[in-house]
């Protein structure tokens, strides 16, 4: 540690490690290729359990410290048993996790101490699409809103800049706002 009389900010994000990784990967861009993996198994009805353990990155196979699993299902008003969140809610989970992590990382970089970060997400949808009632209605969200409430040592403008920058660098935000080729096959 260097003895710098700077404002001490601790958001629990290791910015030095992130900057180090950025530096190293800009010199070895092939190591920046990641492949995220999930395996799922139908439980019954509309209930599915999905597991995440291994992934590929930095030129080799990697693994989470332990396996994570998530249940998805549909609520009772869809005549389901409601044994998990809906898949579309899992999309909101991904967006919330990604944007909030971004807010924390950018805040650490900009030496802004966060005290609390809350987000309320809504995805709106007309289910005439998935039910095949009206072919002009899309299946997915026709809009997503995210409302942040952030308590931090910063001006309103600085907080707005944090949130804007976190969207600019977010993977899930990009996935939701841009088209992606999806290939589904059967083995």
């Amino acid at each position: 540690m260097t003895a710098v009389a700077e404002k001490q900010v601790q958001n629990g994000v290791n910015v030095e490690a992130l900057l180090g990784a950025r530096e190293a990967l800009s010199k070895a861009p092939e190591a920046a290729r990641f492949n995220w993996k999930a395996t799922s198994k139908w439980v019954g009805g509309t209930h599915t359990r999905t597991h995440m353990k291994s992934f590929f990155g930095l030129g080799g196979d990697q693994s989470h410290k332990s396996e994570f699993s998530f249940d998805t299902d549909h609520p009772e008003i869809f005549a389901s048993e409601d044994k998990g969140a809906t898949p579309v809610e899992m999309v909101l989970t991904g967006l919330a996790g990604c944007l909030t992590a971004g807010v924390a990382a950018v805040a650490q970089m900009r030496k802004i101490q966060l005290r609390s970060v809350k987000a309320t997400l809504e995805g709106s949808m007309d289910i005439q699409g998935i039910l095949g009632i009206d072919s002009d209605v899309r299946n997915g969200f026709d809009g997503v809103t995210v409302k942040f409430e952030i308590d931090a040592d910063a001006t309103k403008q600085e907080i707005e800049a944090l949130v804007a920058q976190s969207q600019k660098r977010s993977a899930v935000y990009d996935i939701l706002t841009n088209p992606t080729n999806v290939t589904v096959s059967v083995s």
Binding site: Q157, E160, A161, A164, Q165, Q167, K168, Y173, D174, L176, T177, N178, P179
Partner: peptide, 15 residues
Amino acid sequence: LFSGALANQVALSDL
């Protein structure tokens, strides 16, 4: 096909 991120692009630019 256009990105759905226009709102953030203009917010960043205004900031």
